[in-house]
Amino acid sequence: MTSTPDAAIAASPATPRQRLAPADLARFSLVLAIVVLALSTPGFLSRPSLIALINAMSLVGCVALAMTFITLGGNIMSFSLGATTSVAGIVFMATLGLGLLPAIVVAIVAGVVISAAQGAVIGWLRANPIIVSMAAYALLIGATQMIVGPKVDAPNLAYEVLKQRLFGVPASFLVLAAMAVLGQLVLTFTRFGHELMLVGSNARAAEAAGLDVGRVTTAAYMVAGAFSAVAGILVASRFGSADMQTARGFEFTAIAAVLVGGTAIGGGKGSLWQTFIGVAVMATINAVTLLRGFSIEIQQLVVGLAVLGVIVFQGIGRRT
């Protein structure tokens, strides 16, 4: 009897109650250590420090949420999300003369199209996702600089509304929180969310059960493109201009937040809530090291060690 997608989704086993896995214990210990270190850091709880913290979360957070969809689908990560974010910011600034809402829509559509093309190649042609993202990164950098030049400035101040605060909270952080809630609702309550988890857990088994892996993968990249575009809009609005350097390196911080948050690097396990926590942890690490006078190199070293530790403990967990 041939399995159907509905049967595959319905038959997916519930996660049994288990003891705390090594990777979970490592993440819990890391978060606890960061909280203790942050609370003991002079100036961390000051208003300017906290505002700077949530601003940092807002700028890279949407890219991390985007990366979560790609990782959950079993495609590890994308090196082109930072470039996609920059392109979306450029498109937003270039079309702002049409009005704020049209510029937002056009920028999001640009992000969706860029990422959907990559998802289609990966999903239907079974191309290596890392190689595809590296090629897309190079194409985006080269083509965008040839077409629009090194920088695009805002033609008006319509973007200023995205820099406002509501009850003292930056609008960009509220956007990040809303995107996290929306994304988690999609993962939890939609057919696409269940299919994405199945494909990430075992793409061959999902395909044998009747799921269209190419369609699911392309859809995941489309969502990731939309989330990255929102990040590009927020970054461009903060600086009042956009270029291909504005989101440089965002993809590395994003994958760090995804892994520290607990999403399995092999896909099929994780959530946007966990990524949101991972973003907070990464932003706190940077804030604490900065307040304690450490150099950027030390900040990068600490982030690298945190990610490496999570990966190692994930590997230990799979072998036990």
Results as ranks from 00 to 15, higher is better:
5 P>Y: 09
13 P>A: 14
22 P>N: 06
22 P>I: 02
27 R>I: 13
27 R>K: 15
28 F>N: 07
29 S>I: 15
29 S>D: 04
33 A>F: 15
35 V>K: 01
44 F>A: 01
45 L>E: 07
49 S>D: 02
50 L>G: 12
52 A>M: 08
54 I>Q: 12
55 N>F: 07
57 M>Q: 11
58 S>R: 03
64 A>T: 01
65 L>I: 10
67 M>P: 03
70 I>L: 07
71 T>R: 06
80 S>D: 03
84 T>V: 14
92 F>I: 08
92 F>H: 07
92 F>T: 05
95 T>M: 15
96 L>K: 02
98 L>E: 14
103 A>D: 06
116 A>V: 15
122 I>D: 06
127 A>C: 13
131 I>G: 04
131 I>A: 10
132 V>L: 06
133 S>L: 03
135 A>N: 08
137 Y>A: 08
138 A>W: 05
142 G>E: 07
144 T>Q: 09
151 K>E: 15
155 P>S: 07
158 A>H: 09
159 Y>N: 09
166 L>V: 12
175 V>I: 15
179 M>L: 15
183 G>Y: 04
183 G>E: 08
187 L>P: 02
190 T>F: 14
192 F>I: 10
195 E>G: 06
197 M>A: 07
198 L>K: 13
198 L>Y: 10
203 A>L: 12
208 A>L: 11
213 V>R: 02
220 A>R: 01
225 G>S: 03
225 G>P: 00
230 V>A: 07
233 I>N: 00
235 V>K: 05
239 F>K: 10
244 M>N: 07
245 Q>G: 10
249 G>W: 04
251 E>Q: 05
258 V>M: 00
265 I>T: 07
269 K>R: 12
271 S>W: 02
274 Q>L: 14
277 I>G: 05
282 M>Y: 01
282 M>G: 00
285 I>A: 03
287 A>W: 01
304 G>D: 06
304 G>N: 05
304 G>R: 03
305 L>N: 06
306 A>C: 12
307 V>S: 01
307 V>R: 00
310 V>Y: 00
312 V>I: 14
312 V>P: 08
